[in-house]
Simulated scan of single mutants.
Amino acid sequence: MKMQNFKFQSSGLGRFFGPLEAKIMEILWTAESEITIKDVQHKLDREKAISFNTVMTVMNRLVEKGILQKRSLIRSFVYRPVMTREAFMEAQSKELTFDLIEEFGSQAVVHMVDALDQVDPELLDRLEQKIKELKKDR
């Protein structure tokens, strides 16, 4: 699933979601099971009053975007994320990387390599191993 709008000036989930969408997704990702709109609204109400209809609209839009799944229960619906937060972030970073390479080619790769001086040495070891595997398979 590829998110359509990426906000460079934001951080974390704010790069992919609006402020209320991000809060709702955090609630759903930390929930232990499926959750209702009313449950989400109550958790949001701790911060500020947000109407049930607003929460319902946002959650149903997240269903339309393929981020949430919706299931009918007796007289209500329950929602759950399609994927974990970690899987979502992994999928988005992969999509962004492929888009950058498609758009900017080798320049994007060079800039990514330049940024490696700021990462954990263990990551460098994993990247080195991955490059060796790629070369071996060619």
Rank of each mutant, 00 (worst) to 15 (best):
Q107I: 13
F88K: 03
E128T: 06
K70L: 06
L96W: 02
L44Y: 04
K130W: 08
G66R: 06
N60C: 08
V82D: 05
I67W: 07
R46E: 07
G105L: 00
A22F: 09
L123M: 10
A91F: 04
S33R: 11
D117Q: 13
G14R: 02
A108M: 11
R85L: 07
E21A: 04
F88M: 02
A31F: 06
I74M: 11
I27Q: 05
E95Y: 12
E47R: 11
I35V: 15
N53C: 08
R138Q: 13
E26D: 15
I67K: 06
D114K: 14
R75K: 15
V63K: 00
E86K: 12
M25W: 02
Q129K: 15
Q69F: 08
A49N: 13
E86A: 04
M89Y: 03
A108W: 02
V109L: 15
V82F: 06
K2D: 13
S72C: 07
M25S: 01
L100Y: 06
P121I: 06
Q9N: 11
Q41F: 06
S72H: 09
V55P: 10
K70T: 07
P19G: 00
W29E: 12
Y79D: 01
A87I: 03
L73N: 13
Q9C: 07
S51P: 04
V109P: 02
Q92L: 05
E34M: 10
L100C: 02
T97C: 04
N5M: 12
D99F: 05
F104H: 08
E26G: 13
H111A: 14
D120V: 09
F88G: 05
D99M: 09
Q107M: 13
N5Q: 11
I67G: 12
T84W: 06
T30R: 15
E86W: 03
K43D: 03
L96Q: 10
Y79H: 07
L13K: 10
T30C: 10
G12T: 01
K2F: 00
E47K: 08
D45I: 01
T84C: 02
I24Q: 01
E128H: 08
M83Q: 13
M112C: 09
K135V: 08
D114R: 14
D114N: 14
Q92V: 03
R85C: 00
Q118T: 14
